[in-house]
């Protein structure tokens, strides 16, 4: 029960932070950090895929609601949740059934870095591909993806180092 309340706190906090702070940020006219996927990244590795996808879908849809892009973030977040398990398996040699929350502490810095880089790149690519439907400009798209991945990674790593001090 406490776990669920804790999770809801994170959910609401991340959505509000994304909507009120990060979505208003356009570093150099391009980059918007999508920090809210931290919520999906930090799920325990034992969580069932269906469960994770439903959470991701709800999270994406809530962010969509705030940014007037119905379905866009939901599609990308669901996709991220779907591919998270194979990605973890790809990166860590640890047994998935063991159950761990991906973090710098649990995986070591280089593994965690690769894990978050892969997931963030996947998410940003899908999201910005959907977003760019109307006018396709490969250079702008690549610029947007790179800067968004970079800024999102920065946020995740900051959060990670903060969390480590506390824990």
């Amino acid at each position: 029960m406490i776990k669920i309340i804790h999770r809801m706190e994170w959910f609401i906090g991340l959505v509000l932070f994304q909507a009120l702070v990060l979505n208003q940020m356009h570093i150099g006219g391009y980059a918007t950090p999508f920090f809210y996927i931290y919520f999906i990244l930090k799920f325990n590795s034992r969580v069932s895929r269906n469960n994770l996808m439903l959470w991701a879908f709800a999270l994406g849809l809530t962010v969509d609601m705030f940014s007037n892009t119905p379905g866009m973030n939901a599609a990308a977040a669901t996709c991220l949740a779907f591919f998270r398990a194979p990605l973890i398996r790809l990166i860590t040699l640890r047994d998935m059934d063991e159950g761990f929350r991906p973090s710098v502490k649990a995986l070591g810095f280089s593994s965690f870095f690769r894990y978050s880089l892969l997931t963030t790149s996947l998410f940003c690519t899908i999201l910005l591909l959907i977003d760019t439907f109307s006018f396709f400009n490969p250079l702008v798209l690549i610029g947007k993806i790179l800067t968004s991945v970079l800024s999102t990674m920065l946020c995740i790593l900051c959060m990670e180092s903060l969390g480590r001090k506390k824990g």
Partner: peptide
């Protein structure tokens, strides 16, 4: 997965 994606794109 497919269901959720279909819903998302339908909304979009």
């Amino acid at each position: 997965f497919i269901l959720l994606e279909v819903i998302s794109f339908a909304l979009l």
